[in-house]
Design a protein around this nucleic acid. Sequence first.
DNA 1: TCGACCATGTAACGTGTTACATGATTAT
DNA 2: ATAATCATGTAACACGTTACATGGTCGA
Lengths: 167, 167
Amino acid sequence: MSGYDIKQLIQGSIGHFWNESYGQIYPSLRRLEADGLIEEVSGGGGGGRGRREYRLNHAGLRVLRSWLEEPAQNDVVRHETSLKLFFGAQMGPEAAAAHVRRYRDVQQRLLQRYRSAAERLEREQAASPHLPYWKAVLDGGMRYAAMVIEWCDATLEELDRLEETAL
Amino acid sequence: MSGYDIKQLIQGSIGHFWNESYGQIYPSLRRLEADGLIEEVSGGGGGGRGRREYRLNHAGLRVLRSWLEEPAQNDVVRHETSLKLFFGAQMGPEAAAAHVRRYRDVQQRLLQRYRSAAERLEREQAASPHLPYWKAVLDGGMRYAAMVIEWCDATLEELDRLEETAL
DNA sequence: TCGACCATGTAACGTGTTACATGATTAT
DNA sequence: ATAATCATGTAACACGTTACATGGTCGA
C-alpha cells in the first residue's frame, strides 16, 4: 500500500484504538525500505502526484510475525474525562455531569458506527481469513461503548442525587 | 505537595488511566512556580535530600478550575492488544488467544485491586467531598475490567471454535 | 476550469520516558 | 552500619502531531 492508503485504512477501521499521522507514516516507510523490510511496487496505480506503493517482503513478513507474537506492552492509557472527574469536587456536580454527558454522546455515536461497520464487515469480508479477528476487535469496541453508556447513566443519576442533597 | 508525593499519589489512585514520570513532574513544578501558579511551602516536613513542597495559590486554583470546565480532549487511545488481534490472521487462533488470555489476566488482577481500593475509599474518605467523584471513577474502572473479562471469554471461545474448524 | 480528492514529504514543536547522577533520612 | 525509602533533578532520546509546502488526477 501507499502511505496515503495506510492512513485511510487506519481511519476507516482501527481509528478508534490506534492512529498514525502522515508525519509518522512517511518517515517510517522510508526507514522500512532502508531496512529492507518493504519494497516499492512499480505498477502502483495512478492517483495524485507521485504515488508510491509498497509491499512487505519476506524479511518484513517475518519481522511482522515476530512482533505479533510478542506480548503486548501494557497499554498505558490517558483518559482525560476520568482525570477531570477525579477532580470533580473542584467543579461541582453540574460541571462534572457535563463531562459525563459529553462522553456519553461520543460513545453513543460511536456505537452506531460500530453497528454499521459490523454489518459491512459480514457482507464484504464474508470469506476473508480476517473476518473472525476483525469481528472480535469490533465486538470489543461495541462492548466498550455499551459499558460506557451504562456507566454514564449510573454516574449521571448519582451526580443528580448529589446536586439535590446540596440544595 | 512535593514532586515525590505527586508521583506516589498518582500511582496509588489514578495510575491505571493516567501517569506521569519524574521527568515530567519536576520540570512542570518549575514552570508552574515560574508562572506564579504554585508557591513553595517552607515547613514542608522532613524526608530525603532537599524536599520541596508546593501548594496551589489563588491564580493556580483559578487556572485549574478553568481547565476542569473545558471539555476533555477526545482521548486517542493506543491499544496494542487490539492492534495485534486485528492482525490475527497472520498468526493464527492459538497465538491470538495467548494475547487475549494475557489481557484477561491483567484485568482480572486489576479488578481485585479496584475492589479493595473501593473498600478503602469508603472507609478512609467517608466524609470527603471527593468521595462521590472518586467512587464514580473507580466504578468506571471496575466496569471496564468486568467488561473486558467477558469479552475475553467470548473471544477465547470463538478462537477455540476457529481452531477446531481448521483441523 | 475548478473543486474535491489523491498524494508525498519535511520542519518545528511539544510531549513523555528512561537512564543517570546525587544525596538525606529512618528504621533495623 | 546498612538497606530501604524518601527525594530532586537533568540529559538524551523516542515518539507523535501540526502546519506547511507542493503538486497530480478526475469528474462535473
